[in-house]
C-alpha cells in the first residue's frame, strides 16, 4: 500500500469516527464506510458488497439518549481494512472473504463501544473548559474546544485504522487462510441470522398493539417476490395514510387524543 492510499484510508476512518457520534452524514454506516475504504484501496466492489452485508446487520443500531449502540464505525472501517489486506495481490473476491470480514466486524463493534464511552467521558472536562471560556465571553475558545472534541471522536477510529494498516498483508492473509472452512461457512450462516437482531431491536422500539397488524401484512406481502423494496415502501406509506385518515373520521374524542381503538369505533359505526 502506498502512502497516498494510507492517508486516504486514515481520512475515511477519521470521517467515520466523527460521524459515529455526529450521526449526520452517515459516513460511519457500513454501506458508506466500507465502500469508501474499498474505493481508496482499489477494491471497490468488495467494499460495496461487504458494506451491503454489514449494513443489513447494522440496520437497527442507533444511539438513543445516553445509550450507545454497537459501534458501526469501527466495525465497518476495521473489517473493510482487514478485507482489503486479505485481497492484496489477488484479483476478485469470494463470498467467504466477505463472511470472514463480517465475523471479525462483530467483536470490533463491541470494542468500539468501549472506545466511544471513553471519549464521551473525556468530553466532560472539555465542556468545563468551555464553561470557563464562556465566563470570559471568549467564543473563539468555545468553538475551538468543541472542534477538538469532534477531532477526538475522529481519532478514535483513525488511530486503530492506521495501526491495522501497518500489519503486513501476508500476516493478515496467513491468518485468514488458516481459518478452516467449517468455521468460515458457519460464520456465514451465523451472519445470515444475525440480521434478525437488528430488526428485533427496531421492532421492540416501535411495536404497539395498534401497529402489529401492519407487521403481519408486511410479512405476507413480502413473500410476493415481484414487489421490490420501493414497491413495499409505497404500499407502507399508503397504508399509513389510509389508517391515519380513517382513525380521524372515527375520532369523536377530538384533538386526536388517540384513546381506545379508532378502528373499533369505525367498525361500530357501520
Amino acid at each position: 500500500m502506498n502512502i497516498v492510499t494510507i492517508i486516504l484510508v486514515v481520512l475515511v476512518a477519521f470521517l467515520a469516527g466523527m460521524e459515529g457520534i455526529l450521526d449526520e452524514f452517515q459516513f460511519h454506516q457500513p454501506l458508506v464506510a466500507c465502500t469508501l475504504i474499498g474505493l481508496v484501496t482499489g477494491h471497490l466492489e468488495a467494499g460495496v458488497v461487504l458494506g451491503g452485508s454489514l449494513q443489513m446487520i447494522a440496520l437497527g443500531w442507533a444511539n438513543i439518549g445516553a445509550a450507545v449502540a454497537p459501534d458501526a464505525a469501527l466495525a465497518s472501517v476495521a473489517s473493510a481494512i482487514i478485507l482489503v489486506l486479505g485481497l492484496e495481490g489477488k484479483t476478485g473476491f469470494t463470498k467467504g472473504d466477505i463472511s470472514t470480514a463480517i465475523a471479525i466486524a462483530v467483536p470490533l463493534a463491541v470494542a468500539g463501544l468501549v472506545l466511544t464511552m471513553v471519549v464521551r467521558t473525556l468530553a466532560v472536562p472539555v465542556v468545563h473548559i468551555m464553561d470557563s471560556a464562556a465566563e470570559e465571553g471568549d467564543y473563539k475558545k468555545v468553538e475551538l474546544w468543541h472542534i477538538l472534541a469532534v477531532v477526538m471522536q475522529g481519532l478514535r477510529i483513525a488511530i486503530p485504522a492506521g495501526a491495522l494498516l501497518f500489519i503486513p498483508a501476508d500476516v493478515v492473509q496467513g491468518a485468514l487462510a488458516a481459518m478452516p472452512a467449517w468455521l468460515t461457512d458457519g460464520m456465514a450462516i451465523g451472519g445470515g441470522m444475525v440480521v434478525a437482531v437488528g430488526y428485533a431491536m427496531v421492532i421492540n422500539m416501535m411495536a404497539t398493539k395498534e401497529v402489529w397488524p401492519f407487521f403481519a401484512i408486511g410479512f405476507v406481502v413480502a413473500a410476493i417476490t415481484e414487489i421490490t423494496l420501493i414497491g413495499l415502501g409505497v404500499l407502507g406509506v399508503a397504508l399509513a395514510l389510509i389508517y391515519l385518515n380513517l382513525s380521524k373520521m372515527g375520532g369523536t374524542s377530538g384533538g386526536g387524543g388517540g384513546h381506545g381503538d379508532p378502528l373499533d369505533s369505525i367498525l361500530n359505526d357501520y
Binding site: Y199, G233, L235, G236
Partner: peptide, 16 residues
C-alpha cells in the same frame, strides 16, 4: 404513528 406503521410494515418485509 405513521412512521411506526410504515416502519413495522417494511420491517416485516425485511425479516421475511
Amino acid at each position: 404513528k405513521g412512521a411506526s406503521i410504515l416502519g413495522m410494515f417494511v420491517l416485516a418485509a425485511l425479516v421475511q
